[in-house]
C-alpha cells in the first residue's frame, strides 16, 4: 500500500505487471532471436506468410486472442496435455505461467520485427568474411551479428516490455483476476473504474501514461540517434 494524494494505492498489481513483463521480455528475446534471424535470412516466398503470421497480434483484437487462448489452454486441451508430457502440473488459465505464454504471443511482433530489421541491415559480406576466417555459426553470431544489432535488441526489449505492461484483453480473458497471480495493473484500473473509485483509477492511469511516454521517448530517441528501424 502506498498513499498518494491521500488515496491508498495497492502496489501488488504493479509489481506483478513488472514481473510478468520482465519474464515475457526475457523469453521473447531468447525465442525471438533465432526466429528473427531465420526470417531475415529467408529469401523464399514463405517469408511473406511468416511475416504476416508474426504481425497477427498487431491487428487482431486482444479479446480474440484471449478467447482462443481460453479455449486452447483448457485443462483437458491439447496445449496443457502437451506440457503435462514434460512434467508440467497445474493449469494454464488463471496462472502466471499462462499469462506469460499469452503475453509472449501477444508481444511477439514487438520483439521479432525490430530484430529482423536489425539483422537484415547487416551486410552479407561481413558474415562471409567471418566465415572465410573459419568462424563457426555461433562465433559469427556473437562476434559479428550481436554487436552490430545491439540497438535492435534494445528496441525489441523496450517495446516488448512496454507492450506487455499495457496488455489488457488477453489478461482479462485468461487471468481470472487473482491477486498476486494474475491481477495486473490494467485490470486493476478497469475494476476501479467499474466500482466508481475514480481517484485510484486516476492515479494508476497517470502512472501508466507517464511510463508509456517515457518508454516511447526512449525508443524514438534511439531511433533518431542510431537509425534503428521499428515496426
Amino acid at each position: 500500500m502506498l498513499e498518494i494524494f491521500g488515496t491508498e494505492i495497492n502496489l501488488g498489481p504493479i509489481w506483478l505487471t513488472l514481473e510478468v513483463a520482465a519474464i515475457t521480455t526475457l523469453v521473447l528475446l531468447v525465442v525471438g532471436t533465432p526466429l528473427a534471424w531465420w526470417m531475415a535470412q529467408m529469401r523464399s516466398s514463405n517469408k511473406v506468410f511468416l511475416e504476416a503470421l508474426v504481425a497477427l497480434p498487431l491487428v487482431l483484437p486482444p479479446t480474440v486472442l484471449g478467447f482462443y487462448l481460453l479455449i486452447i489452454f483448457n485443462p483437458t486441451g491439447p496445449v496443457t496435455e502437451f506440457l503435462r508430457f514434460f512434467g508440467f502440473e497445474g493449469q494454464l488459465t488463471f496462472s502466471k505461467t499462462g499469462l506469460v505464454i499469452g503475453s509472449v504471443i501477444y508481444s511477439l511482433p514487438f520483439a521479432v520485427q525490430p530484430l529482423m530489421h536489425a539483422f537484415e541491415a547487416i551486410p552479407q559480406r561481413l558474415l562471409d568474411a567471418a566465415a572465410t576466417l573459419r568462424a563457426g555459426v555461433l562465433d559469427r553470431f556473437f562476434s559479428v551479428v550481436l554487436p552490430l544489432s545491439q540497438r535492435g535488441f534494445l528496441v525489441a526489449a523496450t517495446l516488448t516490455f512496454a507492450h506487455t505492461v499495457g496488455e489488457f484483453g488477453v489478461v482479462l480473458m485468461v487471468g481470472g483476476n487473482i491477486p498476486g497471480e494474475t491481477r495486473m495493473v490494467s485490470i486493476d484500473i478497469f475494476d476501479h473504474v467499474e466500482s466508481l473509485e475514480y481517484d485510484q483509477a486516476h492515479i494508476l492511469s497517470a502512472m501508466m501514461l507517464v511510463f508509456a511516454l517515457v518508454v516511447l521517448m526512449l525508443v524514438y530517441g534511439l531511433n533518431r540517434r542510431f537509425g534503428v528501424k521499428v515496426g
Binding site: L70, I71, N74, T76, T93, M173, G176, N177, I178, I187
Partner: peptide
C-alpha cells in the same frame, strides 16, 4: 475462486471448462 470481470465472463470460464 477465480473472478470473471462480469457475470458473462465468469460464465465463459465455466463454458470453456477452465473452471
Amino acid at each position: 475462486i477465480v473472478n470473471g470481470e462480469s457475470i458473462a465472463h465468469a460464465f465463459q470460464y465455466v463454458v470453456t471448462r477452465n473452471a
